[in-house]
Simulated scan of single mutants.
Amino acid sequence: MPVSMQVIYPITEDSHFDYDYYTSTHMALVAEHFGPHMQSAQATKGLAGGPKTPPAFHAIATIVFADQDAMKAAMANAGPVVGDIPNFTNSKPHTLIGEVIA
């Protein structure tokens, strides 16, 4: 059963996020270190939380793995990816790992 990992970067009063660095450098690190183990990866930039409502999140990254073993293998290589986070944001990310059901 496929497994997804979502990394969610909340917006706070004093948070910042460098989208250029994130898309050009950080996502390349994700591909380099997780690539052999993941099925897909995408990043979504927050634009709104609804009509006339600002977004609650800078971005959400969604990475899909074939199964939990593939995710565990990718996470064994996560050091450089996690260590890169302060280079593009001071937002403390939340993570959701789940079973892909649809």
Score class of each variant (00 low, 15 high):
residue 67 D to M: 01
residue 94 H to Y: 03
residue 52 K to I: 00
residue 96 L to T: 15
residue 28 A to I: 08
residue 81 V to C: 05
residue 51 P to Q: 13
residue 25 T to D: 11
residue 41 A to W: 01
residue 47 L to A: 11
residue 52 K to N: 05
residue 51 P to H: 11
residue 53 T to N: 05
residue 29 L to W: 09
residue 24 S to A: 05
residue 84 D to K: 10
residue 58 H to V: 09
residue 37 H to L: 04
residue 5 M to K: 12
residue 40 S to K: 06
residue 90 N to F: 10
residue 68 Q to P: 10
residue 75 M to Q: 14
residue 78 A to K: 01
residue 22 Y to M: 12
residue 20 D to G: 09
residue 80 P to I: 01
residue 56 A to I: 09
residue 67 D to C: 05
residue 87 N to V: 00
residue 82 V to D: 08
residue 76 A to T: 12
residue 6 Q to G: 07
residue 78 A to Q: 04
residue 96 L to E: 15
residue 13 E to V: 01
residue 61 A to K: 13
residue 24 S to C: 01
residue 44 T to S: 14
residue 3 V to R: 04
residue 45 K to C: 04
residue 60 I to E: 13
residue 37 H to M: 06
residue 2 P to E: 13
residue 46 G to A: 04
residue 48 A to C: 00
residue 94 H to D: 00
residue 25 T to H: 14
residue 9 Y to L: 09
residue 68 Q to H: 13
residue 35 G to L: 04
residue 79 G to K: 02
residue 14 D to R: 15
residue 4 S to L: 12
residue 47 L to Q: 15
residue 61 A to I: 12
residue 33 H to F: 11
residue 36 P to D: 07
residue 78 A to Y: 00
residue 55 P to I: 06
residue 100 V to Y: 08
residue 96 L to Q: 15
residue 74 A to E: 07
residue 56 A to Q: 07
residue 100 V to R: 10
residue 35 G to W: 02
residue 5 M to R: 13
residue 49 G to Q: 00
residue 92 K to D: 12
residue 36 P to C: 00
